[in-house]
């Protein structure tokens, strides 16, 4: 399933976008230090009031003379860090709780399933806001822990259902009769079957984490000394970038957020095509060809009739 999944064009585009941002997060700050020779905090006194993009500042400067590209590169690191960290935390919680519930059954399952349902029914952002706002100047790790700790429930339900069906299969029963430990059965034998569910879920959590962090930073929650996309938009807004028309300040971070979201939507659409074959784009192409042929044949028919009469 994983291989089929990776062969879909939409999935490839989505993964490429996420990969690109990951690279920018890893090498961006280095690039800005050595090639651009700028840091986000550095002030260019020649361009104090915010100048449009030019050869020196590729994305222009902010109203305080700071380089927007340097901000973007450092911001990508924070945003992607939060995305990955929260996705890892969320996925671990999802898999552990989901698989545990699905595999145990009985009272443990009922208890864990209740927990999953309660978390799944929480309006995520409200909870996130109130928890994150409780900590002043929360750093990226704290924000990720909060996001990951709240966002896991949706996937856990899937994992639980999958594990429950796997638990009844012959191979797990066989392993149990052989006397394998439960941990080994879950981790070594069952887990590979769950990868098809886990990997798109992980991507979804990355995008969710990035977006939630951006929304929080936009509302002013988080550490103001850590540049991130949401913080850029917040500062641009609070420092009158709109009024002064400094569009190069707030367009790049928002575009980055859109692209991340777009990438996940693409991946999810690819996933839909596998699980629901009627939506497959290959099939649609066939339908399109069929419709075209049909239209052509009927029109040629009618032409023949015309000439015959």
């Amino acid at each position: 399933m994983l291989k089929r999944f990776l062969l879909i064009g939409k999935v490839q585009i989505g993964l490429a976008i996420i990969g690109m941002f990951t690279l920018a997060a890893v090498f961006g700050p280095w690039f800005s230090r050595t090639v651009l020779e700028m840091t986000p905090q550095q002030v260019d006194y020649m361009n104090l009031t915010g100048s449009p993009p030019d050869a020196e500042h590729w994305l222009g400067t902010t109203s305080q003379g700071q380089d927007v590209l340097a901000w973007m590169l450092h911001g990508t690191r924070t945003s992607m860090l939060v995305g990955f960290a929260s996705a890892i935390i969320g996925t671990v919680l999802t898999v552990v709780i989901g698989a545990w519930a699905g595999f145990s059954g009985g009272f443990v399952d009922r208890f864990l399933n209740g927990t999953i349902l309660v978390f799944g029914n929480f309006p995520t952002f409200a909870l996130l806001f109130i928890v994150a706002a409780a900590f002043q100047n929360a750093n990226w790790l704290l924000v990720s822990i909060v996001i990951g700790g709240i966002e896991w429930a949706g996937g856990a339900r899937q994992i639980r259902a999958q594990t429950m069906s796997l638990r009844g299969r012959d191979f797990t029963t066989a392993l149990r009769t052989v006397g394998e430990s439960r941990a080994r059965i879950i981790l070594v034998e069952v887990m590979p079957h769950l990868l098809g569910v886990i990997s798109p879920m992980f991507l979804g959590l990355i995008a969710a984490g990035v977006n939630q962090q951006a929304a929080l930073a936009f509302l002013g929650i988080g550490n103001p000394s850590e540049p991130s996309w949401g913080l850029m938009i917040n500062w641009a807004m609070t420092q009158n970038a709109l009024f002064r028309g400094l569009w190069w300040w707030f367009i790049p971070p928002g575009l980055a957020l859109c692209l991340i979201g777009f990438a996940t939507t693409m991946v999810n659409f690819g996933l839909d095509e596998i699980t629901n074959p009627t939506l497959s784009s290959k099939r649609m192409k066939l339908m399109r060809i069929f419709l075209r042929e049909k239209a052509r044949s009927t029109s040629s028919h009618s032409q023949k009739e015309l000439t015959a009469s």
């Binding site: 977006n211 951006a214 641009a236 709109l242 707030f250 928002g254 957020l257 979201g261 996940t264």
Partner: peptide
């Protein structure tokens, strides 16, 4: 519309205010 759905509402709002209201 796939792209539209992934635009953060606050950022789109910012763009629209900047373009239609300020500009």
């Amino acid at each position: 519309s796939m792209f539209f759905s992934s635009i953060p509402a606050f950022w789109l709002g910012l763009l629209i205010v900047w373009y239609l209201a300020y500009m």
